[in-house]
Design a protein around this nucleic acid. Structure first.
Lengths: 202, 202
DNA sequence: GGGGTCATGTAATAGGTTACATGATTCT
DNA sequence: AGAATCATGTAACCTATTACATGACCCC
């Protein structure tokens, strides 16, 4: 199941998707990604794009379809999707939609080790987190509204609506967790003290 | 804000945390991580552990506190936390709890490009995803129950409870999204056909 | 005493990020 | 005409994953 893909970086999926509409040169892809706000969904930086384009070409998913020149600017290499590439796009995207994958968000890691912090601090940190989560929520909601107001079909804000759902869930969890932390305060503090053995190094 | 850390891999945070209790050699850390199920929260593999331990040592967060030998097994290098290391553990963990970070889950990327798939397929894929999400939910819930039944304090299942909250949110979103996809069916299919220009390469 | 698996690492490779480089256009 | 930004990449450097290696212990 899910044999390893020749190119694994999700940025490559975006490239395949854009090239499925028309051939482009890397810089044009770059502009598209930025303008379209895809950098909110897919980790993106200039260097990775060229890397990924190179990998896709080597794998046979895209191919040079010529080079063009505009004014006196340096030559641009234009790439187009191959048949293989179109198949890969379809297959990969289907897999991502069908199969939820185990991921490693930073907050999960933090929670799994949170016992190493004193409970009072944790309470305060969680409160601050809640403020920031509220900010993020507001921003995301505003972005969705603005976009829809601009006449874009709802389908194209699905990923932000998903984020919003996750944010709401996290907010709910953190509120609840913060409450419970105060209940565990005593027990937790005792366990911490025992394990740290009294010496406050630092 | 949040200047770059000398060692960024979250596996390093787990190492600092374990070493804050007592000095250990890498293989012991490895066993701990596996037995404790930390590999559900933090990406882990044998090679990375040695890499991370090396990086932490170079950064001065941990230091060799001697080498031991047991039977005729090869020598083991035992590492302990330094004062710097204890500070880094506290600072890093606090930051992770306080500041939500922008992340890039695969499903977000998929949603942002989902318009490239025909709507009927998407409906079917989403149904399959829901089944798998339900499985994951059941597994996670069972794991929590088993752990609590074993007498472990609730604090130590917080990360799984968080996962559960996210899973529920995702299930809700996907159910809703699947419904809306059927509504958009016509419009979506027309847009796809227009952009693919009739030629079904493959 | 031979076959697994535990214990302990090192080395080779691939993947990704940052920094560097350089000419064009545009603005003031 | 000089400064800022756009356009277009390449190269150097880090990080992370996989593969390789090797001796001990344990079971039949």
């Amino acid at each position: 199941m899910a044999r390893k893909r020749k190119v694994g970086n999700l940025l490559a999926l975006a490239v395949l998707s854009y090239l499925s509409r028309q051939p482009m040169h890397p810089y044009e892809l770059s502009r598209m990604l930025r303008e379209h706000g895809d950098d909110r969904s897919i980790k993106y930086n200039h260097g990775s794009l060229y890397m990924v384009v190179g990998q896709l070409a080597k794998a046979g998913f895209i191919t040079e379809v010529g080079t063009g020149r505009q004014g006196q600017l340096p030559e641009r290499t234009v790439y187009g999707l191959t048949g293989e590439g179109r198949r890969e796009l379809h297959d990969w995207l289907s897999e991502l939609v069908e199969q939820p994958r185990h991921e490693y968000p930073a907050f999960v890691a933090a929670l799994s080790l949170i016992g190493a912090l004193p409970p009072d601090e944790v309470g305060e940190l969680l409160r601050r987190r809640l403020e920031r989560l509220a900010d993020q929520r507001a921003e995301t909601a505003a972005l969705i509204e603005r976009t829809l107001a601009g006449g874009v079909p709802e389908l194209f804000v699905a990923e932000e609506q998903y984020r919003l759902a996750l944010l709401d869930a996290e907010i709910g969890f953190v509120e609840d967790f913060a409450r419970r932390v105060t209940e565990w305060r005593e027990e937790w503090a005792r366990a911490l003290a025992a394990q740290n053995g009294g010496d406050p190094a630092g």
